[in-house]
Write a protein that binds this DNA or RNA. Sequence first.
DNA 1: TTGTATGCGTTATCAG
DNA 2: CTGATAACGCATACAA
Lengths: 337, 337
Amino acid sequence: MGQITIEEVAKLAGVSPATVSRALRSPEMVRDSTRKRVLKIIKEKKYVYHALAADLSRQRSANIGLIIPSTIGSIFVRTVFAILEKAQEHGYTVTIGNSKYNPEIEMSVLRTLNERHPAGLLLTGYCVRKEELLEEINRSGIPTVIMWEKPDDPQLSYVGIDNYRAAYTMTEYLIGLKHQRIGLILGPYSKVDRVHKRFEGYRDCLSDHGLPWDDLLVVEKEPTLADGMEAMNRLMSLANRPTAVFAASDVMAFGAMAAAKEKGLKVPADVSIAGFDDIDFSAYADPPLTTIRVNGIEIGEMALSCLLDMIENPSPQPRQICLKTDLVVRNSCRSLE
Amino acid sequence: MGQITIEEVAKLAGVSPATVSRALRSPEMVRDSTRKRVLKIIKEKKYVYHALAADLSRQRSANIGLIIPSTIGSIFVRTVFAILEKAQEHGYTVTIGNSKYNPEIEMSVLRTLNERHPAGLLLTGYCVRKEELLEEINRSGIPTVIMWEKPDDPQLSYVGIDNYRAAYTMTEYLIGLKHQRIGLILGPYSKVDRVHKRFEGYRDCLSDHGLPWDDLLVVEKEPTLADGMEAMNRLMSLANRPTAVFAASDVMAFGAMAAAKEKGLKVPADVSIAGFDDIDFSAYADPPLTTIRVNGIEIGEMALSCLLDMIENPSPQPRQICLKTDLVVRNSCRSLE
DNA sequence: TTGTATGCGTTATCAG
DNA sequence: CTGATAACGCATACAA
């Protein structure tokens, strides 16, 4: 309603608008007494700063765009919260878009965010149509950091994890437990690069250990509890069924555990199940889930620092950070010996 | 980088800036051929619309501010995603702030969001210092909808649930199962109004059924798995321990289940456990959790429709919607008979 | 240290 | 249907 502007504050304080602006943004340029007088009026009249106008004038904004691809129950939630928190600390707001694992939507969301000219962009990318996305990023010139993966493009800044290595590690762990037939339950790996890397890690590890390949052992589903359950059911109804199942997301692993129990199969006595992510529930499950720990919070925090650095110290070379993941051994996998 | 403006597009298309603007925002006001010419240039030159400038000029924005109080693992995630999705459909962006259950932060986040002059505000409030918050809301005149609770103030618009009734219902259900000593595990109810209502529902139901009051049966903790576990441990080490425990959030209920199992207690044979929220995991737990279903997605969707309606059809009377919650009976509670 | 004047990119009003 | 022009609220270069 009563939206007071800087000009009216100036009038009331008996100074010029410029002085009010300075009192707010660069206090050191203003005499103490003047500043206090201005601030008093501001408080009295409940003036609210118009950040949009300021952004337009100064040609840069204090807002960060964030795109997540996610559906409910997403592992990115931790990352998002970490970003929110750090951004707030640094005086930035965060505008979020959801690409819903759909490249069309991803582009359109990116464009919408760009129209608000954010100071920087944080992407958890779908990245199938990479060229187009890349072009948009380059053209806009807005500092951008990719999260959760290690894109091949050497130009891009990212804070990610080595999905390939992590999946390889888990597979190798299961092989070390003498499992020969290992099922793999995956999110949409034919579409999502990050998930595809996990597939490759599994595949190569099997091959490196001389284990035979079996298409039937790999099930691609949506990353939900229900789909994890379905996938497990399919695996368990195989003639020659796996002794261990690697679900490349904890949520799917829990679906798989439920399916096993429903079939009267004990975990890990009858079948071993491993996950990926280490969400909060994993340690509290019955049995506690063996999984790959990904520090989503750290990803968010690092990505934001990176981005802020890029915003404040522009430089051509990209920041590339690969965070480590850990194998967390709990009780959902047993040795076959 | 090459940020083209509407003016340059105009020059290239041989028209005035106003015409370009119209070609974009009100196509019907422009001759077909002209519009096509303009649009062609826009595509060729990869012009990107400057939403901030537009907002400033037109004195309204296409951005919605959203405040959640939440920590990780929050039940609000579903609501947030629902809002994101619907907002995008309607051409709005969403800027999120996290109040972290802290009234100071809540106010400061609210102010920061207001500085960007959003079209509307969605609050999942902490709302302890209601007066101050209310004043800020009224003063700014920005349409605001409270979510997840039923504030007492008749002026406020909200889309909430009846936390009191829901908790009462669950308590009554447990009493119907012949439980006489019922533990209550709660989030910070002394600070969060929404949670306090659940406490009242439990308390009044007990009293209405002539059951004695015992302070020791109520444990207040943070809404996390770890704290749910701790709370349960405390309850189970009571001399006269409860036969049923009502955890007023599913996350805490899972912590409680883990604690019970660790102590060698079977659920529900040795102790019944009930939750609140019906998060995705609840149906997949072992045993599946009896709980109160809250449709977080619906809350988000309704709140957004409400807000959009308020934005487009300003009117003095508040919109107040109370969504129903359901008792979902699964297998984590047994009858004592 | 402070004031003046101009510009940021768009929209709206008013003519034509 | 289209063009010129004045806002929108603030920041900054330049002047004082």
